[in-house]
């Protein structure tokens, strides 16, 4: 449909080769920035990466930060009251917590329930949980940790580096599943590369 109206054929402005040059430069910049500058942000959060700092309220409304627990081995678990495997996993988590009481170990169970704290309170009472429960009601932190479901657990070492990421529920009473936690408690933190290697070995073995 011909635009018969008032489009003036103004060729005022920069000459074509310069325009093309500018356009190509802009495009290249975007591509390079994305590929080399921002590629980290596309990678899933995994073993070997620094655990992102966060602050969330507990069930009493008190704010708790991840950095408060630096120096301890942190078991960061994302869960929800409506998630059946999470409910099955909780008793074993409580057992581990009781067993390791006194050692430099902490469990932070972050609930992504959209309901209020009362629902979670009820659940916590029913299961007799004594470890800290945090509430990520808006789901912001779960996005930061790029979780794709519940339950998901991150074992974070004394330096704040993620030692292992576990998707799905585990029977935490099983010694095999506790291996990394016990190692960290005994021998202290390892290097990020060792965590990455451990993940690859697990994937291949």
């Amino acid at each position: 449909m011909e635009e018969k109206q008032n489009i003036e054929n103004e060729t005022k402005g920069l000459p074509t080769p310069i325009l093309v040059g500018i356009a190509v430069a802009v495009l290249l910049v975007i591509v390079l920035v994305v590929v080399f500058g921002r590629s980290e942000k596309f990678k899933p959060v995994d073993a070997g990466m620094q655990a992102t700092e966060f602050t969330l309220p507990d069930l009493k409304g008190q704010m708790k930060s991840l950095k408060d627990y630096r120096g301890k081995v942190v078991f960061l678990n994302f869960w929800a009251t409506w998630c059946k495997p999470c409910r099955e996993e909780m008793p074993s988590m409580q057992e581990v917590y009781t067993t390791l009481m006194g050692q430099k170990f902490e469990i932070l169970a972050v609930s992504i329930d959209k309901d209020g704290a009362e629902v979670i309170e009820k659940f916590v009472k029913e299961y007799g949980l004594t470890f800290p429960i945090l509430h990520d009601r808006k789901g912001v932190i779960k996005e930061v940790y790029k979780t794709t479901g519940v339950p998901e657990t991150f074992i974070i070492d004394q330096n704040g580096v993620i030692a292992e990421k576990i998707m799905g529920p585990r029977d935490w009473r099983d010694e095999r599943n506790l291996k990394i936690i016990l190692e960290l408690l005994k021998n202290g933190p390892k290097s990020p590369e060792e965590y990455k290697k451990g993940k690859r070995q697990k994937a291949n073995g």
Binding site: I30, V34, R38, K43
Partner: peptide
């Protein structure tokens, strides 16, 4: 998965410029 997410990021900026 990273490749498709990178292309998305690029396409995002390209569509903005468009």
């Amino acid at each position: 998965m990273i490749l498709s997410l990178m292309f998305f990021d690029m396409a995002y900026w390209f569509y903005l410029i468009t």
